[in-house]
């Protein structure tokens, strides 16, 4: 009985509100954690940018790029251990929450949600990609992931010079935007120290500017291109937290697809896969909240259902569980 009650409370929760508060707490933690000496290390699977000096933990891409940039003979020698340990730490963080890091913890994602909230306040609708656009654009994150990994390696074997150090960070909009939250605007600059630095920082500034426009009109604009998302996807099978779908119960009504910030079509149309987590997914669970069928979508930890779609919960969240009394009738 008690268990059912708790289950009901969770399944009927107003997910968006709960998520907002979790995100707020996480944002404060990662953007300002440094002020209270919080440091979760440097292998966090989100964009908690180390350029923000007060960050409570550091994005894994920073150490990853530095480690991979070691001279090849060092990298493939004893130093490989340190790379391996970094990766293990990353996985250790990741394995519990899976991509929910993106939907609930990533300060950069949270920022986009806030921009979205602002857009909503202003009464402007969102944009969507068409399916062909989606298919093409969703590959970009793998290109970025390749930049994250390949450029340091090329530096290690001596093809590229030291000016390419942390190349992805140089173009990452988080480098420019995250420090702003601690009042540091110094990343809005072009670095003329070398041609590489100039190109990279220019691209970075361009991306940062596009980020604001993009995330204003498109929900979770950047997540679509985020290499961290791509890296997550390669490891998401290891994770304990799973987004599952019961295809038999799905009526393909498309409600989940409709609310999906990332426009993942499979969530509605794929009735054969159980594991419905796709590479673009950021595990915000909005689809689960928007599914009007009992248990058609559910979130599991170790095969234990922690949050699943219910008719009742859906009605509650959509304002369909009671009749709004209209004054004008």
């Amino acid at each position: 009985m008690m268990k059912n009650k708790i289950k009901n409370i969770i399944n009927n929760m107003p997910l968006n509100k709960v998520r907002f508060w979790i995100q707020l707490v996480m944002f404060i933690l990662f953007a300002y954690g440094g002020y209270v000496f919080i440091d979760f290390g440097s292998s966090i699977p989100i964009f908690a940018c180390p350029y923000n000096r007060e960050t409570g933990a550091t994005c894994y891409f920073m150490p990853l790029q530095h480690q991979l940039a070691m001279p090849a003979n060092v990298l493939f020698g004893a130093a490989a251990i340190s790379v391996f340990i970094g990766l293990l730490t990353f996985i250790a963080w990741f394995v519990v929450l899976n991509k929910a890091w993106c939907g609930y913890a990533c300060p950069f994602g949270t920022l986009q949600d806030w921009i979205t909230a602002l857009r909503k306040k202003l009464g402007i609708r969102y944009s969507t990609y068409s399916q062909p656009q989606f298919d093409k654009l969703s590959k970009i994150k793998y290109i970025f992931l390749a930049i994250v990994i390949m450029i340091p390696l090329l530096m290690g074997i001596g093809v590229l010079g030291g000016e390419w150090s942390g190349a992805f960070c140089q173009i990452c909009p988080a480098r420019i935007i995250s420090p702003m939250f601690v009042g540091d605007f110094s990343q809005w600059k072009i670095d003329f120290s070398s041609v590489a630095a100039m190109i990279l920082t220019t691209i970075g500034v361009l991306f940062a500017a596009v980020f604001f426009v993009g995330s204003f009109i498109k929900k979770r604009f950047f997540c679509f291109f985020c290499p961290m998302s791509a890296l997550h996807y390669t490891m998401s099978d290891l994770s304990l937290l799973k987004l599952r779908k019961d295809g038999d119960k799905c009526t393909k009504c498309g409600d989940c697809y409709k609310v999906c910030d990332m426009q993942i079509k499979d969530i509605a149309d794929d009735v054969t896969s159980t594991n419905i987590l796709r590479d673009d997914c950021m595990f915000c669970m909005k689809c689960v909240a928007a599914c009007p069928e009992d248990d058609a979508l559910h979130v599991d930890i170790l095969n234990m259902r922690v949050f699943s779609s219910t008719k009742e919960g859906f009605a509650k969240r959509m304002g369909m569980s009671h009749l709004e009394k209209n004054n004008d009738q």
Partner: peptide, 23 residues
């Protein structure tokens, strides 16, 4: 099938309604 809407703008509501009647 019920309609789910993420952002209660006419634009999105109409799309959601359309999805309900087709998908």
């Amino acid at each position: 099938d019920r309609v789910s809407v993420d952002e209660w703008f006419l634009n999105d509501m109409i799309d959601s309604i359309a999805d309900k009647y087709l998908k």
